[in-house]
Design a protein around this nucleic acid. Structure first.
Length: 105
DNA sequence: CCCATGACCGTAT
DNA sequence: AATACGGCCATGG
């Protein structure tokens, strides 16, 4: 018998996480980008909330950054986020991803 | 249903 | 470049 394994996530949250899971390594997407791809352009702030809340192992949360190539948050550990981004080949300058426009998903 | 939150965003100082 | 504001929006209490 199939038990109820569906997460408690709302439909929107599921779409958001689904989109995030598809961001290729070496590329980045802004909260606004995610919102747009999830079908809710303008819900960038809400996306941030979902990132903060939904802890789903394996998803590349670090590839979701703020507008203009700024770093954004990472559950209180922005340093780790920066490290992960650098590990994927990015260069951070003055709190921003260098050449952001070309690495944007 | 109303209200407070906040890993946001664009514009103006 | 840094800070301040107002606007936006999906959640959860």
């Amino acid at each position: 018998m199939t038990a109820k394994l569906s997460s408690t996530l709302t439909p929107f949250a599921r779409r958001v996480l689904s989109v995030v899971s598809r961001i290729p390594a070496g590329r980045v997407a802004t909260y606004g980008d995610i919102a747009r791809r999830a079908g809710r352009p303008g819900a960038a702030r809400a996306v941030g909330n979902i990132m903060r809340t939904a802890r789903r192992p394996g998803l590349p949360y670090h590839r979701v950054i703020a507008s203009g190539g700024q770093i954004g948050g990472y559950g209180g550990n922005v340093q780790l986020k920066i490290s992960l981004l650098i590990a994927e080949g990015h260069v951070i300058r003055r709190r921003r991803i260098a050449g952001f426009l070309n690495k944007r998903w």
